[in-house]
Computed example of a mutant assay.
Amino acid sequence: MMKKYQFLLIASCVFISACSGIPYAPKGSTMYDGGYTDVKTGANTYTVTFEGNGYNKQEQVVGFVKQRADELCHPFKAETEVRPFLKEKTNYTALNGQLYITQHKFPSAEASVVCVE
């Protein structure tokens, strides 16, 4: 009986985690297709991008970009110009000889970051 409850608990956790937004993490470091990337563009400047999924809110994605900017500039202050956008993604699936095409738009954001004292 106890093993049945343990199985149900584990199955519930797996199901809930599969239906969650992309966490704050570098792109490619989790099982999710998204996350943040950053590119150093100058001595004190960066470009930061975060790609979410259908479970992320636009405000959350913007917050993740600002959080990464703060981490990159620490101990200095990060001045950011955040540009939220929807990233389009097309999936192709073949089932029983039929091709199914789905298009989705996911919340994403990009920021130009300047680190200032």
Rank of each mutant, 00 (worst) to 15 (best):
Gln67Asn: 15
Lys40Leu: 06
Pro75Ala: 08
Asn53Gln: 02
Ala69Cys: 06
Gly97Ser: 07
Thr49Glu: 14
Leu9Lys: 06
Cys13Ile: 15
Tyr36Gln: 00
Lys27Met: 10
Phe15Asn: 00
Gln60Leu: 05
Pro23Trp: 01
Asn56Pro: 09
Val82Trp: 09
Asp38Arg: 06
Pro26Thr: 08
Ala69Arg: 03
Gly42Thr: 14
Ile22Ser: 02
Phe85Cys: 00
Gly35Val: 08
Ile22His: 02
Thr93Asn: 11
Lys57Glu: 09
Gly42Leu: 07
Phe7Glu: 14
Gly35Cys: 06
Phe7Val: 05
Gln60Ala: 10
Arg83Asp: 07
Asn53Asp: 06
Thr30Ser: 11
Gly21His: 00
Gln98Gly: 01
Asp70Ile: 12
Thr49Gln: 09
Lys89Thr: 06
Gly21Asn: 08
Cys19Pro: 00
Ile10Tyr: 01
Gly42Ala: 05
Lys66Ile: 14
Thr93Asp: 08
Ser12His: 01
Glu59Ile: 12
Gln67Tyr: 05
Pro26Asp: 05
Cys19Asp: 10
Val48Gln: 05
Cys13Trp: 03
Phe76Asn: 15
Lys27Ser: 04
Ser29Lys: 11
Glu59Arg: 13
Tyr32Asn: 07
Pro84Gly: 00
Glu88Tyr: 15
Lys57Leu: 07
Leu72Ile: 12
Ser20Cys: 04
Asp70Trp: 01
Val62Ser: 13
Asp33Gln: 12
Pro26Leu: 02
Lys40Ile: 11
Ser20Lys: 00
Phe50Asn: 03
Phe64Gly: 01
Val65Pro: 00
Gln98Ala: 15
Gly42Asn: 14
Gln98Trp: 12
Thr93Tyr: 11
Ser12Asp: 00
Ala18Gln: 07
Val65Cys: 03
Thr37Leu: 08
Tyr36Leu: 02
Ser29Cys: 07
Gln6Val: 14
Thr41Lys: 04
Ala69Glu: 00
Thr47Cys: 03
Ile16Glu: 01
Pro75Gln: 11
Arg83Met: 10
Ser12Lys: 04
Tyr32Pro: 01
Leu99Tyr: 08
Gly28Phe: 10
Lys40Ala: 13
Asn44His: 02
Leu9Arg: 07
Lys27Asp: 13
Leu9Thr: 05
Thr37Gly: 07
Thr45Met: 06
Tyr36Met: 01
Phe15Gln: 02
Ala43Lys: 11
Ala25Lys: 09
Val82Asn: 02
Asn44Pro: 01
Thr93Lys: 10
Leu72Tyr: 03
Asp70Val: 10
Gln58Phe: 04
Asp38His: 13
Gln98Cys: 09
Gly54Thr: 11
Lys87Ser: 09
Ser12Val: 05
Gln60Met: 14
Thr30Leu: 11
Ala43Tyr: 13
Val62Lys: 01
Pro26Gln: 07
Tyr36Cys: 05
Phe7Pro: 04
Tyr92Pro: 01
Leu9Phe: 13
Lys57Val: 01
Leu8Thr: 00
Phe15Met: 06
Arg68Trp: 10
Thr47Glu: 14
Asn44Gly: 01
Lys57Asn: 10
Val48Gly: 04
Ala94Gly: 08
Lys27Val: 14
Asn44Ser: 06
Arg83Thr: 12
Cys13Pro: 05
Glu81His: 14
Pro23Ile: 02
Gly34Trp: 04
Phe76Arg: 12
Arg68Phe: 05
Asp33Trp: 04
Glu88His: 14
Ala43His: 04
Val61Asp: 11
Lys87Tyr: 12
His74Asn: 14
Pro75Leu: 13
